[in-house]
């Protein structure tokens, strides 16, 4: 994975299991978000494949690509809600594009999705009128309106206060358990990692590869890599208390 002659990561080989919350970790600039964008087909890898339920995102074109994209939902770092549309219109948009549901049904589904993220009362608000945390929740509602198999979340807690961030973590956990949705999350917020992650991989900028994979609690206590232990303990050096 890289751009032109610049290789960011190589020999990336991992599996996301059905129904789990899978977190991609790494230091700043290690390529977490870039990896996510490769997984959703926005970027093409220099070599290799990305399979979602057996279909290769990297080579799919036309109708096959559309089929894959219908099975995934994505939320971006800044929410990426369309500023000229109300929350309800934002959430309804994928239904308008991909289904033949009557308008009243689309509104009902979109409102229920907003209800799931606690924003039904704000359905007629514009994105600019609500807070950053609410925007991210609305973005999650939009991403899951077609009930995708996999939900990709790029730094869902970034820039949020600890309480809002914790609420968002609970929302992710609740959606995962109630809907059985597979989630791939990019984050480096430690509380979030330990709250939501079933499994993590950690990217390393220097070796340009995955240096750890598994349960974050186990990695924190017994990873063979000192850097991984320090990262998960938020410690400058190995001797500092956890």
């Amino acid at each position: 994975m890289g751009f032109g002659a610049m290789i960011i990561m190589e020999r990336l080989d991992f599996v996301v299991r059905r129904g789990e919350i899978f977190v991609i970790l790494g230091g700043s600039g290690s390529g977490k978000s870039t990896l996510l964008k490769h997984m959703i087909g926005l970027y093409r890898p220099l070599a290799g494949r990305v399979l979602i339920d057996g279909a290769d995102v990297t080579t799919a074109e036309g109708a096959e690509r559309e089929d894959i994209l219908r099975e995934i939902g994505v939320t971006y770092q800044m929410g990426a809600l369309f500023g000229s549309m109300s929350l309800l219109e934002n959430v309804r948009l994928p239904l308008e594009v991909h289904t033949r549901l009557p308008p009243a049904a689309m509104n009902r589904i979109a409102l229920a999705r907003l209800q799931m993220v606690g924003l039904a009362e704000y359905s007629d608000f514009m994105p600019a009128e609500i807070s950053g945390g609410m925007q991210k929740r609305a973005a999650i509602a939009r991403a899951m309106v077609l009930d995708p198999k996999v939900l990709f979340l790029d730094e869902p807690s970034a820039g949020l206060d600890p309480i809002t961030s914790a609420e968002l973590d609970q929302l992710v956990r609740r959606l995962s358990s109630s809907l059985g949705m597979t989630m791939v999350v990019v984050t480096h917020e430690l509380p979030s990692i330990f709250t939501i992650a079933d499994r993590v991989i950690m990217l390393d900028k220097e070796s340009r590869s995955i240096i750890a994979e598994g349960d974050p609690r186990v990695l924190r206590d017994s990873s063979e890599h000192p850097w991984v232990r320090r990262f998960l303990r938020r410690a400058e050096t190995e001797d500092l208390p956890a």
Binding site: R108, L111, A112, R113, L114, Q115, A120, E121, S123
Partner: peptide, 8 residues
């Protein structure tokens, strides 16, 4: 959520 949304 549909039943709840109606009450919102």
């Amino acid at each position: 959520p549909y039943r709840d949304a109606d009450a919102a």
